[in-house]
Computed example of a mutant assay.
Amino acid sequence: MVQSRTQAPVSIQLTPMQIPEAVPRSAGWTLMNAGGMDVAERPGLLLHPDTPSEIIVQIQNLERRTLQVNLDLSIAGNFPAEWYSIHTEGTEIAPGAQMDAAIYFNIPATYFEGRDAIVPGATEKLDLDFISSLAIKIDLDTDRSQTYYEEFSLHIRPYSAYMDFLPVLYREVDFIGRFMKIFEQAFQPIIDSFEVMWANLDPLTAPELILPFLSHWVGWDLDPILDRNQQRRLMRRAIEIYTWRGTRRGLRLYLHLYTGLPLDDNIPDETAKHISITEPIGESFVIGEARIGEAILGGGRAFHFAVTLRPDRSQQIDERLIRKIIEQEKPAFCSYELSIVNRE
């Protein structure tokens, strides 16, 4: 609703940026001012807690001289002054020009959950509707001024998305909007939980209390030696680790998830990788070149491999835990040697 009144020497227009679809009169009662104007006839601004809103004031100078204008706002009832502010483009209006001003409102997010609103047996009810009076003081000359008053109402309501699903006929009833908010607060957390159910089933984002269930789901034993972030990464890739257990790829993946060292799949040279797993096997036995005491059949130890980790200087790696991982992932008949070399 827009209210416009033309009074010499200015024309004043109020434009609320968010108009309420329902006013208290729809619930069976009416707010009246001294002049007999009820709340449905004056401009109304809808306010939601923690949501900024504003009402635009346009003042046009109908005189042929410059006017000095000052704005002041008074709100009946217990409406704190820190909940609103007035912003203007100045105080002077040139002849025939227009000055725009804005009144900004911001209701605290805890308005309906504050102590005053939920005290059992309270005799005073929470105020939801207020009558505001905007005083526009105009200096006609050096010793004369005139003040004009424009009234508008404020309606504080909880935001309810459920109202968008109702026909317009029901949205025009103020009581239904507040009544639907009760059901929204009761059922919306359940609906929200379904929308984020995937996060509860992902080990990286699941709450800590659900981790034992997820570990049992994939057959992964939670090791108290590992921290929670390592457990989450390993649990998420558990099926892949099981698939490649006993292979170079599976061991490298496990060490990557524990240490955070890169896999370096794009590096063809195995000895240049952060996690290097090699088999020290040289040339096979060659007749005529072997010497007594130096011959090694097959060129190396059978079923033996070497693991070399190359962390940065600042990265700490628990060698005891690395050996435990290798013992768990390697075939039982294999032997190994471990080296941790600073990359720098």
Rank of each mutant, 00 (worst) to 15 (best):
R5I: 12
T6G: 13
Q13F: 00
N33W: 02
V39P: 00
V39R: 04
L45F: 03
D50T: 01
D50V: 02
S53H: 07
S53N: 14
S53M: 09
T66G: 02
L73T: 04
I75N: 06
P80L: 09
I86A: 01
M99T: 01
A101S: 13
P108I: 07
T110G: 05
T110F: 06
R115T: 09
T123E: 11
T123G: 04
L126T: 12
I131D: 11
D139W: 09
S153C: 10
P158Y: 00
Y162I: 04
L166E: 03
D174Q: 11
I182E: 12
I182L: 13
A186C: 07
Q188M: 14
N200Y: 09
N200H: 12
P203I: 02
G219K: 07
R228G: 01
L234A: 04
R236C: 01
A238D: 08
A238L: 03
G250Q: 04
Y258W: 15
L263H: 06
S276M: 04
S284T: 12
F285Q: 08
I287S: 13
G288V: 08
A290G: 15
G293I: 05
I296M: 09
G299Y: 06
G299C: 04
F303D: 13
P311R: 08
Q316C: 03
C334S: 15
S335P: 03
L338A: 11
R343S: 10
R343C: 04
E344M: 14
